[in-house]
Nucleic acid binder design. Structure first.
Length: 283
DNA sequence: GTCCAGGTTTTTA
DNA sequence: TAAAAACATGGA
C-alpha cells in the first residue's frame, strides 16, 4: 500500500482487491451510505469520513494522522487479498464463484462494542431496520462529531458502554428495537464493568471468547461469532445465520464449516453476500 | 391479514 | 433433551 497527502485528502494506491461498495454492502456494517456520485459517507471510531474509488486508487478526506491510526487498518488495506482470492479459489469451486461475485470485499476491522450492539440489534430483524435502529441509537445517545460542510450525514459517534449502562428501558423506547432493548442494557453493563473485557477477546482461545460474549443476555452463537469476526479480528470465526444455513445445505452439501479453516471468516462473507444477492438459488 | 427479517430465550411435551 | 412458541417492529 502507498499513499500521498494532497490538501485535505489522502490518495491511496497499491491496495489489493478493494471495492468500497462491495465492502460496505455485504452486510458486515450498518453505518455507511452511498451518495449519488458513488462516494460513501460514514462514521467509525468517532470520525466522519468520505471515501471513493477511481480505478485502482482510493480517495479519503482524512488527515494523515487519522488515515494511519484509523482508516488504513479499519478498511484492512494492509492485508493481501490477492493471496486470499488464490487460496479461496483453490479450496472449492462454489466458493471461488462466490468470491468472484464481489471480489472487492475486505473484512472491516470495526470497533468491538459497536459490532456487538449492531448484531444484537440484528437478531430476527432485516438489514434496513437494523440500520435505522442504529442511526437512532447514535443520534439519541452519541456525541455529535465534526462533519464537513455539504455533507448530509448524521454525524454522531457510537454511544459508549458507559453512557448506555446508565440508561433505562424507557430511555431506549424511542429506538423501537423491541425485545432487544434489555439485551443492549445488559451488554453495556457487562462491558462497562469489565465483566466482559472485549479487547482481551482478541487473544484468548476462540471457545473462551465465545463463552464470554454469550454470558450477555441476548447473545447466542451467531451474534458472538459476528462480534468476533467483524469487531475482534478473529478471522477464524464463521457466523451461521439463516442465509448461511441455507447456503451450506444447498451450495455446500456435506461440507463442515471447519473445512474453511483459516479462510473461515472471509469465506463466510463471500458466501453470505453471494447468497443474499441470489435468493432464487434457494427457492 | 400473513409472512418474514444476519436469533435467542422461554415454554412445552 | 428437543422441538415449538414467544419475543417487538415494520415492510412486502
Amino acid at each position: 500500500m502507498n499513499y500521498i497527502c494532497k490538501g485535505n485528502s489522502i490518495i491511496v494506491s497499491g491496495v489489493s482487491r478493494f471495492s468500497i461498495s462491495d465492502t460496505c454492502n455485504c452486510g458486515q456494517c450498518f453505518r455507511w451510505s452511498a451518495c449519488p456520485d458513488g462516494t460513501y459517507e460514514g462514521v467509525a471510531f468517532g470520525r466522519f469520513l468520505k471515501i471513493s474509488t477511481d480505478g485502482d486508487t482510493i480517495l479519503l478526506n482524512s488527515t494523515e494522522e487519522d488515515f494511519l491510526e484509523i482508516w488504513s487498518n479499519y478498511f484492512d488495506f494492509y492485508t493481501d487479498y490477492e493471496s486470499i482470492h488464490s487460496a479461496v479459489s483453490r479450496l472449492h469451486p462454489t466458493l471461488s464463484k462466490a468470491a468472484k461475485f464481489a471480489p472487492g470485499i475486505h473484512i472491516l476491522r470495526q470497533d468491538p462494542w459497536e459490532t456487538l450492539c449492531s448484531f444484537i440489534f440484528s437478531q430476527n430483524n432485516n438489514i434496513t431496520r437494523i440500520s435505522s435502529i442504529i442511526k437512532r441509537f447514535c443520534e439519541l445517545f452519541g456525541n455529535p462529531i465534526y462533519c464537513p460542510p455539504g455533507s448530509h450525514f448524521h454525524a454522531f459517534d457510537f454511544p459508549s458502554p458507559q453512557v448506555v449502562s446508565s440508561l433505562s428501558l424507557e430511555d431506549l423506547a424511542p429506538l423501537r428495537c423491541g425485545f432487544r432493548a434489555p439485551y443492549i442494557l445488559d451488554a453495556a453493563r457487562k462491558v462497562s464493568s469489565g465483566q466482559v473485557h472485549l479487547d482481551n477477546l482478541r487473544l484468548v482461545p476462540l471457545h473462551e471468547a465465545r463463552r464470554s460474549l454469550m454470558s450477555i443476555r441476548g447473545v447466542g452463537p451467531k451474534v458472538a461469532e459476528c462480534t468476533l469476526l467483524y469487531g475482534l479480528d478473529r478471522l477464524e470465526a464463521f457466523p451461521l445465520d439463516i442465509w448461511m444455513k441455507r447456503a451450506m445445505s444447498v451450495l455446500f452439501p456435506g461440507v463442515d464449516p471447519s473445512f474453511f479453516g483459516d479462510l473461515s471468516g472471509i469465506s463466510q462473507q463471500y458466501i453470505f453476500h453471494f447468497s443474499r444477492m441470489n435468493p432464487h438459488l434457494f427457492k
